[in-house]
């Protein structure tokens, strides 16, 4: 029971401080789940993001469900998702009914211009941490560069990027390159 409440509270907190899409949430997840509570590792977080990228639904919810399921099974997954959507439900309903006319307030714009800077810096810092753990060797760097080029020049959808990367991961481990190296050793 205590653990379920913890799951709800953590995701409520993360939902409350996520501004933007699922990626803006990543630094918060890493801080709360990996660094403070050790509910997941950086590697698992990356796996959840990439799987969440090619399964139905928005990434934020997919990742919340994943972590919840890992901690406390199906019930945990449901509770985490509930925690994640609760701040949206409360705040959007307030914004829609009461605050709509304040939404054009210039101070809100100033605050968001500031928040965007912090979010950019937080994402960059998180990336540096993930780089060391997500890219194991030179082949990993090649996969990263290929994905970056595909994104940059072909604007390929994230689903295709992840699927192609999965195939190259399989190819790296099971391809004839390995036999070549063995031949060389002879």
């Amino acid at each position: 029971m205590k653990q379920l409440w913890d799951l709800f509270a953590v995701f409520f907190k993360i939902g409350l401080f996520t501004f933007g899409g699922g990626y803006a949430m990543l630094p918060l997840l890493q801080d709360e789940l990996v660094r403070r509570r050790r509910w997941a590792t950086d590697e698992e977080l990356m796996d959840y993001y990439s799987i969440g990228q090619c399964t139905p639904g928005i990434i934020a919810i997919n990742v919340a469900t994943f972590i919840g399921c890992k901690q406390k099974g199906k019930l945990g997954g449901g509770i985490s998702t509930l925690g994640m959507v609760m701040p949206s439900l409360i705040i959007i309903m307030l914004a829609a009914s009461v605050l709509e006319r304040y939404m054009h307030n210039p101070y809100l714009g100033y605050a968001f211009a500031g928040i965007r800077i912090a979010v950019t810096a937080l994402i960059l810092d998180t990336l540096i941490g993930l780089w060391k753990k997500g890219i194991e060797d030179k082949k990993g760097i090649v996969i990263f560069l290929c994905c970056a080029l595909l994104l940059l020049f072909f604007n390929l959808s994230a689903v295709w990027i992840v699927l192609l990367a999965a195939l190259s991961g399989l190819a790296c481990r099971f391809c004839p390159l390995r036999f070549k190296r063995k031949d060389g050793e002879k």
């Binding site: 990356m46 796996d47 993001y49 998180t126 993930l130 890219i135 990263f144 994905c147 990027i161 790296c172």
Partner: peptide, 10 residues
């Protein structure tokens, strides 16, 4: 394979 891809996406 997908971890480097997710870094590129982020």
């Amino acid at each position: 394979g997908i971890r480097p891809a997710v870094i590129a996406l982020i």
